[in-house]
Design a binder for these strands. Structure first.
Length: 208
DNA sequence: AGTGCGATTGACT
DNA sequence: GTCAATCGCACTA
Protein backbone atom coordinates (compact mmCIF):
# COMPACT_ATOMS: atom_id res chain seq x y z
CA UNK A 1 0.00 0.00 0.00
CA UNK A 2 1.11 3.57 -0.45
CA UNK A 3 0.44 4.07 3.25
CA UNK A 4 0.66 7.64 4.47
CA UNK A 5 2.24 8.72 1.19
CA UNK A 6 -1.02 8.16 -0.65
CA UNK A 7 -2.70 10.77 1.56
CA UNK A 8 -0.01 13.41 1.19
CA UNK A 9 -1.68 16.43 -0.41
CA UNK A 10 1.65 17.24 -2.03
CA UNK A 11 0.94 14.42 -4.42
CA UNK A 12 -1.95 16.41 -5.83
CA UNK A 13 -0.44 19.78 -6.74
CA UNK A 14 -2.87 22.50 -7.79
CA UNK A 15 -3.44 23.40 -11.43
CA UNK A 16 -1.72 26.59 -12.55
CA UNK A 17 -4.26 29.31 -13.29
CA UNK A 18 -2.29 30.24 -16.42
CA UNK A 19 -3.04 26.83 -17.93
CA UNK A 20 -6.81 27.10 -17.45
CA UNK A 21 -8.71 27.98 -20.64
CA UNK A 22 -10.38 31.36 -20.15
CA UNK A 23 -13.29 30.46 -22.40
CA UNK A 24 -16.09 28.80 -20.41
CA UNK A 25 -16.94 25.90 -22.72
CA UNK A 26 -13.24 25.15 -23.20
CA UNK A 27 -12.73 25.14 -19.45
CA UNK A 28 -15.66 22.75 -18.97
CA UNK A 29 -14.05 20.34 -21.42
CA UNK A 30 -10.59 20.87 -19.95
CA UNK A 31 -11.76 19.97 -16.44
CA UNK A 32 -12.88 16.49 -17.48
CA UNK A 33 -10.28 14.06 -16.14
CA UNK A 34 -8.84 16.56 -13.67
CA UNK A 35 -9.00 15.93 -9.93
CA UNK A 36 -10.95 17.80 -7.26
CA UNK A 37 -9.21 17.61 -3.89
CA UNK A 38 -10.72 18.37 -0.48
CA UNK A 39 -8.81 18.55 2.77
CA UNK A 40 -10.87 17.51 5.80
CA UNK A 41 -9.83 16.98 9.42
CA UNK A 42 -10.12 13.22 8.89
CA UNK A 43 -7.95 13.25 5.78
CA UNK A 44 -7.83 14.09 2.12
CA UNK A 45 -10.78 13.27 -0.12
CA UNK A 46 -10.56 13.47 -3.88
CA UNK A 47 -12.31 12.51 -7.07
CA UNK A 48 -11.78 12.57 -10.80
CA UNK A 49 -14.08 15.00 -12.59
CA UNK A 50 -16.17 13.02 -15.09
CA UNK A 51 -19.01 15.48 -15.86
CA UNK A 52 -19.28 19.27 -16.20
CA UNK A 53 -21.62 21.90 -17.58
CA UNK A 54 -20.70 25.31 -19.02
CA UNK A 55 -22.76 28.40 -18.14
CA UNK A 56 -21.35 30.76 -20.75
CA UNK A 57 -21.32 34.52 -21.31
CA UNK A 58 -24.79 35.84 -22.15
CA UNK A 59 -26.39 32.53 -21.18
CA UNK A 60 -30.01 33.02 -20.02
CA UNK A 61 -29.67 29.84 -17.95
CA UNK A 62 -26.64 31.17 -16.07
CA UNK A 63 -26.83 32.79 -12.66
CA UNK A 64 -24.80 35.77 -13.85
CA UNK A 65 -27.22 36.59 -16.67
CA UNK A 66 -28.87 39.46 -14.82
CA UNK A 67 -25.67 40.88 -13.42
CA UNK A 68 -23.73 40.60 -10.20
CA UNK A 69 -25.53 39.93 -6.92
CA UNK A 70 -24.38 39.00 -3.44
CA UNK A 71 -24.87 35.34 -4.25
CA UNK A 72 -23.16 35.10 -7.63
CA UNK A 73 -20.27 37.53 -7.28
CA UNK A 74 -17.69 34.70 -7.35
CA UNK A 75 -18.64 34.01 -10.97
CA UNK A 76 -17.11 37.38 -11.85
CA UNK A 77 -13.64 36.50 -10.51
CA UNK A 78 -10.79 35.44 -12.78
CA UNK A 79 -10.75 31.73 -13.78
CA UNK A 80 -10.29 29.10 -11.10
CA UNK A 81 -12.32 30.36 -8.14
CA UNK A 82 -15.17 28.51 -6.43
CA UNK A 83 -18.78 29.64 -6.78
CA UNK A 84 -20.88 27.61 -4.33
CA UNK A 85 -24.62 28.08 -3.92
CA UNK A 86 -27.50 26.20 -2.34
CA UNK A 87 -30.19 24.83 -4.64
CA UNK A 88 -33.60 23.54 -3.55
CA UNK A 89 -32.78 24.25 0.07
CA UNK A 90 -30.55 21.23 0.48
CA UNK A 91 -28.09 20.66 -2.37
CA UNK A 92 -24.92 22.69 -2.71
CA UNK A 93 -23.59 23.26 -6.23
CA UNK A 94 -19.90 23.76 -6.99
CA UNK A 95 -18.82 25.87 -9.95
CA UNK A 96 -15.43 27.01 -11.23
CA UNK A 97 -15.31 30.62 -12.35
CA UNK A 98 -14.27 31.26 -15.94
CA UNK A 99 -13.60 34.22 -18.24
CA UNK A 100 -11.61 37.28 -17.28
CA UNK A 101 -12.26 39.38 -14.18
CA UNK A 102 -15.60 41.17 -14.31
CA UNK A 103 -17.23 38.67 -16.68
CA UNK A 104 -19.77 36.39 -14.97
CA UNK A 105 -19.57 32.80 -16.19
CA UNK A 106 -18.59 29.41 -14.84
CA UNK A 107 -18.49 25.65 -15.01
CA UNK A 108 -20.69 23.41 -12.86
CA UNK A 109 -18.98 20.26 -11.59
CA UNK A 110 -21.61 17.52 -11.87
CA UNK A 111 -19.96 14.21 -11.03
CA UNK A 112 -16.78 12.64 -9.68
CA UNK A 113 -15.19 9.23 -9.76
CA UNK A 114 -14.08 8.72 -6.13
CA UNK A 115 -10.30 8.41 -5.68
CA UNK A 116 -8.89 9.20 -2.22
CA UNK A 117 -10.71 9.03 1.11
CA UNK A 118 -13.55 6.80 -0.04
CA UNK A 119 -14.48 5.75 3.54
CA UNK A 120 -14.79 9.44 4.44
CA UNK A 121 -17.08 10.02 1.46
CA UNK A 122 -19.19 7.03 2.42
CA UNK A 123 -19.54 8.46 5.89
CA UNK A 124 -20.43 11.94 4.58
CA UNK A 125 -23.06 10.50 2.24
CA UNK A 126 -24.41 7.81 4.53
CA UNK A 127 -24.20 5.23 1.76
CA UNK A 128 -21.65 2.63 0.69
CA UNK A 129 -22.14 2.20 -3.03
CA UNK A 130 -19.13 3.61 -4.84
CA UNK A 131 -21.02 4.50 -7.99
CA UNK A 132 -23.46 6.78 -6.17
CA UNK A 133 -21.00 8.57 -3.87
CA UNK A 134 -20.43 11.59 -6.10
CA UNK A 135 -22.74 11.01 -9.08
CA UNK A 136 -24.65 14.31 -9.22
CA UNK A 137 -23.76 17.90 -8.31
CA UNK A 138 -25.45 17.83 -4.90
CA UNK A 139 -24.05 14.43 -4.07
CA UNK A 140 -20.45 15.32 -4.79
CA UNK A 141 -20.58 18.41 -2.59
CA UNK A 142 -22.07 16.29 0.19
CA UNK A 143 -19.34 13.66 -0.28
CA UNK A 144 -16.63 16.33 -0.10
CA UNK A 145 -18.49 18.39 2.53
CA UNK A 146 -18.56 21.52 0.38
CA UNK A 147 -20.92 24.37 1.29
CA UNK A 148 -21.30 28.17 1.00
CA UNK A 149 -18.38 28.68 3.37
CA UNK A 150 -16.09 27.67 0.50
CA UNK A 151 -17.64 30.19 -1.89
CA UNK A 152 -14.99 32.43 -3.40
CA UNK A 153 -11.93 30.36 -2.54
CA UNK A 154 -9.05 29.95 -4.96
CA UNK A 155 -9.14 26.48 -6.53
CA UNK A 156 -5.64 26.92 -7.94
CA UNK A 157 -4.11 26.99 -4.49
CA UNK A 158 -3.65 24.07 -2.13
CA UNK A 159 -5.90 24.75 0.86
CA UNK A 160 -9.34 23.45 1.81
CA UNK A 161 -10.38 22.69 -1.77
CA UNK A 162 -8.46 22.75 -5.03
CA UNK A 163 -8.09 21.39 -8.55
CA UNK A 164 -5.27 19.09 -9.53
CA UNK A 165 -4.24 16.82 -12.40
CA UNK A 166 -2.12 16.71 -15.49
CA UNK A 167 -2.63 16.90 -19.24
CA UNK A 168 -2.93 13.17 -19.83
CA UNK A 169 -5.75 12.05 -22.13
CA UNK A 170 -8.88 11.59 -20.00
CA UNK A 171 -10.65 9.36 -22.53
CA UNK A 172 -13.41 10.05 -25.01
CA UNK A 173 -15.49 13.10 -24.06
CA UNK A 174 -19.18 13.20 -24.95
CA UNK A 175 -21.42 16.24 -25.07
CA UNK A 176 -25.13 16.80 -24.56
CA UNK A 177 -27.71 19.33 -23.53
CA UNK A 178 -27.56 20.44 -19.89
CA UNK A 179 -29.60 18.79 -17.19
CA UNK A 180 -32.42 20.42 -15.25
CA UNK A 181 -32.61 23.79 -16.99
CA UNK A 182 -35.42 25.29 -19.04
CA UNK A 183 -33.80 28.21 -20.83
CA UNK A 184 -31.21 27.77 -23.58
CA UNK A 185 -32.12 24.11 -23.30
CA UNK A 186 -30.93 23.08 -26.75
CA UNK A 187 -27.29 24.07 -26.33
CA UNK A 188 -24.67 21.31 -26.10
CA UNK A 189 -22.80 22.58 -23.06
CA UNK A 190 -22.63 19.45 -20.92
CA UNK A 191 -19.45 17.38 -21.13
CA UNK A 192 -18.84 13.93 -19.74
CA UNK A 193 -16.43 11.04 -19.84
CA UNK A 194 -18.05 8.71 -22.33
CA UNK A 195 -17.44 5.37 -20.69
CA UNK A 196 -17.58 6.34 -17.03
CA UNK A 197 -20.18 4.69 -14.80
CA UNK A 198 -19.82 7.67 -12.44
CA UNK A 199 -21.62 10.07 -14.79
CA UNK A 200 -25.13 11.29 -13.88
CA UNK A 201 -28.09 11.84 -16.16
CA UNK A 202 -30.37 9.55 -18.14
CA UNK A 203 -28.75 7.09 -20.51
CA UNK A 204 -30.55 8.75 -23.43
CA UNK A 205 -28.43 11.88 -22.92
CA UNK A 206 -25.15 10.04 -22.77
CA UNK A 207 -24.94 8.88 -26.33
CA UNK A 208 -23.08 11.57 -28.18
C1' DA B 1 -41.62 42.46 4.79
C1' DG B 2 -43.75 39.22 1.70
C1' DT B 3 -43.46 36.14 -2.24
C1' DG B 4 -41.90 32.66 -5.50
C1' DC B 5 -38.60 29.65 -7.06
C1' DG B 6 -34.86 26.62 -8.28
C1' DA B 7 -28.04 24.29 -12.47
C1' DT B 8 -31.57 18.31 -6.97
C1' DT B 9 -32.34 14.44 -4.41
C1' DG B 10 -34.52 10.51 -2.23
C1' DA B 11 -38.71 8.29 -1.38
C1' DC B 12 -42.41 6.23 -3.34
C1' DT B 13 -46.43 4.28 -7.09
C1' DG C 1 -42.12 6.66 -13.92
C1' DT C 2 -44.00 10.73 -10.27
C1' DC C 3 -43.52 14.06 -6.47
C1' DA C 4 -42.52 16.99 -2.60
C1' DA C 5 -38.97 18.59 0.87
C1' DT C 6 -36.48 22.73 1.99
C1' DC C 7 -34.36 27.52 2.49
C1' DG C 8 -31.38 31.24 0.82
C1' DC C 9 -31.88 34.64 -2.14
C1' DA C 10 -33.57 37.80 -5.69
C1' DC C 11 -37.30 40.48 -6.67
C1' DT C 12 -41.26 43.54 -5.74
C1' DA C 13 -43.18 47.19 -2.85
Amino acid sequence: MGGADALKPGRRPPLARAQLPTDTASLARYLIGKTLVRKLPEGVVSGRIVETEAYVVGDAAGHAYRGMTRRNRSLFLEPGYAYVYLAYGSSHMLNVSSERTGIGAGVLIRALEPLDGIPIMQHNRGIGRLRDLARGPGRLTAALRIDRRLDGIDLCREGQLWLSGDDSEPGEIGESIRIGIAREAERLLRFYLRDSPFVSGPRSLNVR
